[in-house]
């Protein structure tokens, strides 16, 4: 009796394997790659001014006791344009938003900010993705919450929406 049951075991195992393949094929692996820098001090980075009239940003800007949002974005990125109005509202609510633009140019940035508004106090142009990699950022847009001592508290992946606003504002100490 016991032996008969054992004969079926390989068949059951292989069926389970194929069922796993089938489920895996139906649900492609869209991995969200979270940064391992959350909870750690900001990496050393310097992103020079992306456009005239607005300062760039570097690690040393984040140790003055004021928590900030640091938005990694690009003028060519469609969801970044979509989150523009939300970032503007957060700025109006009293949050300081800095930006790091990746793979961008001053001209394209000026056009982008002209269209979508400019919520940024500082905008640094990332040199060869160095800052983006140092933050463990895998794409745009991403928004990091940085506390007043220069530690990364939180990473928001993807465009910031109105639903995310109260949470992010609370993290930078702004009453919504």
């Amino acid at each position: 009796m016991n032996r008969k049951w054992l004969l079926w075991l390989p068949f059951v195992l292989v069926s389970a394997l194929f069922a796993a393949f089938f489920v895996g094929l139906r649900n492609p692996d869209d991995h969200v790659i979270a940064s391992r820098m959350v909870g750690k001090p900001l990496p050393e980075f310097v992103a020079a001014a992306a456009m005239p009239g607005q300062p760039g940003t570097a690690t040393t800007d984040y140790r003055d006791g004021k928590p900030r949002l640091l938005n990694i974005f690009a003028s060519w990125c469609v969801p970044c344009a979509a989150e523009g109005p939300v970032l503007m509202r957060m700025k109006q609510a009293g949050a300081e938003v800095n930006g790091i633009a990746v793979h961008d140019t001053a001209l394209e940035l000026a056009k982008f900010l002209g269209r979508n508004g400019n919520p940024y106090t500082r905008i640094g142009l990332d040199d060869g993705g160095r800052a983006q990699m140092a933050f463990g950022s895998a794409g745009v847009p991403e928004t990091f919450v940085v506390d007043g001592r220069g530690n990364i508290l939180y990473q928001h992946i993807g465009p910031v929406t109105d639903e995310d606003m109260p949470r992010l504002l609370a993290m930078v100490g702004v009453k919504p």
């Binding site: 793979h103 060869g128 993705g129 160095r130 990699m133």
Partner: peptide
């Protein structure tokens, strides 16, 4: 991807 190029350069 641009970021892959950045990683190769790095």
């Amino acid at each position: 991807a641009d970021l892959a190029g950045d990683m190769r350069r790095m």
